[in-house]
Amino acid sequence: MSQMTDELAVRKSIVVNCSVEHAFRVYTERMSDWYPFEGHSLFDDSAQRVVFEGRVGGRVYEVSKSGEEGLWGTLIVWEPPHAFAMTWHPGRGEETAQELEIRFSAEGDATRVDVVHTGWERIGPDARERMADYEQGWGGVLARFAEAAGKRS
């Protein structure tokens, strides 16, 4: 199975002409300046900014022009300026969380940024157990709410 998991992980790298510290700051503090909100936002054209609560357990969320917050996920690794990782479930219950890991490493005077995006495609007793835990918690409440709300429409 792990072979299949590897095959399904989305991996991307890019080299940016700036320091590791700057790259990390632009990514986490100035995401609002570059993130392609259009088509990739909970609020679409009324999206305004993205906030990283910089600590393990901190939230990453979007804020709309009217001040509404939309959760994207929670930080599970916070090692500035080298890496962060977070759960990723924008607009969905936590039980459907995918995982993002972003690493920033020096390559000469430039910085290589490596993205690894894994998630629902993971399989195994561990993943299933975690999902069962979530289902008994808040994630399950949200999922049931979504299901009930969906049925009524």
């Binding site: 399904l8 989305v10 991307k12 890019i14 940016v16 002409n17 700036c18 320091s19 700057h22 790259a23 632009v26 990514y27 100035r30 300046d33 570059w34 993130y35 392609p36 990739h40 910085t111 940024v113 993205v115 995006h117």
Partner: peptide
């Protein structure tokens, strides 16, 4: 997979432009 690949290509290109335009 293609969707996520495309998403990251777009997001990282935009990130690179922003990081480099601010020049450190």
């Amino acid at each position: 997979r293609e969707y996520f690949e495309g998403f990251w290509d777009e997001a990282l290109a935009a990130f690179k432009a922003a990081a480099e335009s601010e020049g450190g």
